[in-house]
Amino acid sequence: MARLVETRDETPTARTLVLDVPGWPGHLAGQHVDVRLTAADGYSAQRSYSLAAAPDGDRVELTVQNVPDGEVSPYLTGVFSVGDPVEIRGPVGGWFVWRPDDPAPVTLVAGGAGVAPLMAMVRARRAAGSRVPFRLVYSVRTPDERWYAGELRRPDPGVEVFPLYTRAAPDGWPRPPGRLAKGDLAGWGWPPEFDPACFVCGPTGFVEAAADLLVALGHDPRRIRTERFGPTGG
């Protein structure tokens, strides 16, 4: 069982939940948990959420995007209050993970809410004192939809962050708004010759497109790990 100890609003519609989970066994960056909500009459609903932070004792963090017609996310982002209990199960998943002892450079490609498990990797790198070079290409529709904006703006030696806007960019931003293109990944990701580990996470269409572009650039498909958020999340 977990208990909510703190919340942080990332955007007007996305909230980070800091949970205390006594006996948490630790996790790898990229893993997820299942959150299960139970109503007073016994009805229950479950969803999966990526762990957003590095392992830190009994503390775990999730960031939840409110899906207005969703069943679980409006509760987690609106009703769920500090001190409330919740059932969580995990950590789950042994494939979409970054291990601090892996020396390969890392290209992270995030679409919207898909940044959460990739942020866990950035944070795990920092927590481990790793010097593995990271690049994060982060696609969002507009600047105010960026999660973890303050933290990603602060210098973190060895981590380069490339925000990319699909609908509206800040004034004077050099790249016109538009979908992720081959040139973005060619210019901002590590070249295939460096044999980077590539992690791609976001909505299905974004992940399909980004993974195809990485393959087209010459990356070994076996070096590209993907995680997709279905359109029916929530």
């Binding site: 299960r36 909500l37 109503a39 609903a45 479950q46 769920f80 409330d84 059932e87 299905t204 997709r228």
Partner: peptide
């Protein structure tokens, strides 16, 4: 399980019987 205070849920399945922990979708996620 532990009751989540203020959670009501959406019993949209009606008479449809789903395996435990599953919810219905009309999309085809990947």
């Amino acid at each position: 399980g532990i009751v989540s205070p203020g959670f009501h849920g959406r019993r949209r399945q009606g008479d449809v019987k789903l395996p435990p922990g599953q919810y219905l979708t009309d999309d085809f996620p990947v």
